[in-house]
Design a protein around this nucleic acid. Structure first.
Length: 494
RNA sequence: GGGCCGUUAGCUCAGACGGUAGAGCACCGGACUUUUAAUCCGGGUGUCGAAGGUUCGAUUCCUUCACGGCUCACCA
C-alpha cells in the first residue's frame, strides 16, 4: 500500500481495521456479483407506493455506500450505482446477528451487493429491506464531505473519480458529452458519411498552423509528430474516391493552455465531395440543431450568462461587413497596409506591418466582432493569406470561400470550399512558409505527398472542422474546457 | 511568459499583536429498531503548500520556489 504523505490518523485506523478484517479471514475484494437490476429501474417500477407499502419481489443491486444512519439494531444506509441511489434498511431481526455485525463493519465508500425487497418507510421513502448483503470492495480512503461536495478545483481535475463520486452535476455534464458525441455520429452516418481513422503519428504535421508534439519511432529511427489536424489525410481519401468522410478524434497542439485550449482536444472534421462552403453552412446548421436536440432536448442554451437561441435561420455575413456592422469600421482590401495598420493602431489593436493585410483585418475582426457574436452567426469570406487550404473567392482574389461559425462569442466551426488546384496549392504553401513568423510555427516542410495526391485530381469538396469540446462547453454551459474533458492536462504535483 | 488572488484536519471553511490552531461533516469509542444533514455522550486525528530570512520565538512578517485560479499575451 503506497501513501505519499505520512498517514493521517483516520487513515491509519482504517488500515488497522482492514488488517483485522483480513486476519479474521474476510475476503474484502470479491471477483463478481450478479446484479439483476439497477436502482433506477426499481424506482421506475414503483412510482406510486405509499408509506407502509411493501413488495416481496427480491432484487439484487450493487453500489457504493454513501451514508449511514445507525440506530442500534437497525441501520439505514444510502447506496449509489451509476445512475441513481436508494436507501437500504438493514435490521438485525431480518438479517440475523452475525450478518448485522458484519454490516456494522461496512464504511462509507465501500462497494456492496445487496439482496432485498422494496418497501416504503413511514416518511415515504422508497427503500430496500435488506435480506442479504455482501462486501464487494473495501475503501480505505475517506470520501470528501457529503453536502459541501468537493470544491477544490485542483483536486476535482486531478482526482476526477472523486469529483464524480461527490458532485452529481459533474456526471451530468459528461453524460451530456457522451450524448453529443453519439448524436454527431448518428447525424453524419444518417447523411451517408463514413467514419474513418487517419494517422495521428504524422511525418509532416499539416492542416493547421500550430506547434506539434514531437515523438520518435525507434525501429525506423525517424521523428514523428502527433497530428495537429487530420485534414490532409481526409482529403487524400476524397482523392481516392470517398465522397463523404468524417473523423471524430483527438488532435494535439503544443501551445498554451487556457479556458478554451487543452493540449489534446477533440476535433470533428468532415468532407463532402461536390459540395462548397454554402452547402457546409447548411449542413452545419442542421448538425448542431440535431445534436442540441438529441443531447439537451432543446434548441436553446445559456452560455456565460447569455441566452442563446439555436432555432430559426442563422445569420450569414461576410467578415468585412461584420467589421462594419459591429465595429463601425469600413475596411477593404483597397486600403493600403499603411492605412490598415493605422486603423488598427487607432483601435488600440496590436499589429505590425509584416503581418499582411489579411492578418491585420482578421485581428481587427477578432477584437471588434467576435465577442459580439452571441447568437449563431456564420462569418464568411476570409482573407486569402490566412487561409492556405481554402479555394479562392471567384469575385475577389483577396478572399477565399471560407466561413467560421460563432456562437456565444466563441469559434465553433471553420470550413471552406477546398482548394483543389495543385499548382495553386504549392504556391500557397510556399508563401505561407515564407514569413518568418510562420516559419517558427510550421515545421517549414511542405507536404509533397499531399500535393501529389492533388495532382491526380480531387473533386470539388467542402470541408469543415468543429471543435467538439467547445461545442460541448456551449451546450453544457461550462466556462472551461477542463470541465468537459475527463482528465485535463495539469502540471504534475511537486 | 506578465499581473492579481489563493494554498490551514480526509472534505468545506474559520483564525491569530508573532507565543505550535478550531468549527461542521467525516473518522474513532459508546447508547439507540423507521432515520434521511438521524439524535445523544466522549475523543482533535494537523510538517498551517515548500525552503530560506528576520526574531528569544514564525503557521502568522519578508524573500524565493511549487501548485492552482482569474486575466493579459500566445494559440491563423
Amino acid at each position: 500500500m503506497e501513501f505519499e504523505e505520512p498517514l493521517a490518523e483516520p487513515l491509519k485506523k482504517k488500515l488497522e481495521k482492514v488488517k483485522e478484517l483480513k486476519k479474521d479471514g474476510k475476503d474484502l475484494y470479491k471477483s463478481r456479483f450478479e446484479k439483476n437490476t439497477d436502482i433506477a429501474n426499481i424506482k421506475a417500477k414503483y412510482p406510486d407506493l405509499k408509506a407502509g407499502d411493501r413488495d416481496e419481489t427480491v432484487f439484487k443491486i450493487a453500489g457504493r455506500v454513501m451514508s449511514f444512519r445507525k440506530h442500534g439494531k437497525a441501520t439505514f444506509a444510502d447506496i449509489r450505482d451509476f445512475m441513481d441511489k436508494i436507501q437500504l434498511y438493514v435490521s438485525q431481526r431480518e438479517v440475523g446477528d452475525r450478518m448485522y455485525e458484519e454490516f456494522l463493519d461496512i464504511d462509507i465508500g465501500d462497494w456492496i451487493g445487496v439482496e432485498g425487497n422494496v418497501f416504503v418507510t413511514h416518511t415515504g421513502e422508497l427503500s430496500i429491506n435488506v435480506l442479504k448483503f455482501e462486501l464487494l470492495s473495501k475503501a480505505i480512503r475517506i470520501l470528501p464531505e457529503k453536502w459541501h461536495g468537493l470544491k477544490d478545483i485542483e483536486i476535482r481535475y486531478r482526482q476526477r473519480y472523486l469529483d464524480f463520486i461527490v458532485n452529481p452535476e459533474v456526471k451530468k455534464i459528461f453524460l451530456t458529452r457522451i450524448k453529443i458525441i453519439d448524436a454527431i455520429r448518428e447525424f453524419l452516418r444518417g447523411r451517408g458519411f463514413s467514419e474513418v481513422e487517419t494517422p495521428m503519428l504524422q511525418l509532416i504535421p499539416g492542416g493547421a498552423a500550430a506547434r506539434p508534439f514531437i515523438t520518435h519511432h525507434n525501429a525506423l529511427d525517424i521523428d514523428l509528430y502527433l497530428r495537429i489536424a487530420p485534414e490532409l489525410y481526409l482529403k487524400r481519401l476524397i482523392v481516392g474516391g470517398f465522397e463523404k468522410v468524417f473523423e471524430l478524434n483527438r488532435n494535439f497542439r503544443n501551445e498554451g493552455i487556457s479556458y478554451k485550449h487543452n493540449p489534446e482536444f477533440t476535433m470533428l472534421e468532415f468532407y463532402q465531395a461536390y459540395a462548397d462552403y454554402n452547402d457546409m453552412m447548411d449542413l452545419t446548421e442542421e448538425l448542431i440543431k440535431f445534436v442540441s436536440m438529441r443531447s439537451t432536448g432543446k434548441l436553446t442554451t445559456t452560455y456565460k450568462g447569455n441566452e442563446i437561441n439555436l432555432d430559426g435561420e442563422w445569420e450569414k455575413i461576410t467578415m468585412l461587413d461584420a467589421i462594419h456592422k459591429f465595429g463601425g469600421v469600413k475596411l477593404s482590401f483597397d486600403n493600403t497596409i499603411e492605412e490598415l495598420f493605422l486603423k488598427a493602431k487607432e483601435l488600440e489593436i496590436e499589429v505590425d506591418k509584416s503581418m499582411g493585410k489579411g492578418k491585420i483585418i482578421n485581428k481587427i475582426f477578432e477584437t471588434l466582432v467576435e465577442p459580439e457574436l452571441i447568437q449563431p452567426t456564420f462569418i464568411k469570406d476570409y482573407p486569402i493569406d490566412i487561409s492556405p487550404l481554402a479555394k479562392k473567392h471567384p469575385e475577389n482574389e483577396n478572399l477565399v470561400e471560407r466561413f467560421e461559425l460563432f456562437i456565444g462569442g466563441e469559434e465553433i466551426a471553420n470550413a471552406f470550399s477546398e482548394l483543389i488546384d495543385p499548382v495553386e496549392q504549392l504556391s500557397r504553401f510556399k508563401s505561407q512558409v515564407k514569413s518568418k513568423f510562420e516559419e517558427e510555427r510550421i515545421t517549414g516542410r511542405i507536404d509533397i505527398d499531399y500535393l501529389k495526391a492533388l495532382e491526380y485530381g480531387m473533386p470539388p469538396t467542402g470541408g469543415e472542422g468543429i471543435g467538439v469540446d467547445r461545442l460541448i462547453m456551449l451546450l453544457t454551459n461550462s466556462n472551461s474546457i477542463r470541465d468537459v474533458i475527463l482528465f485535463p492536462l495539469l502540471r504534475p504535483e511537486s
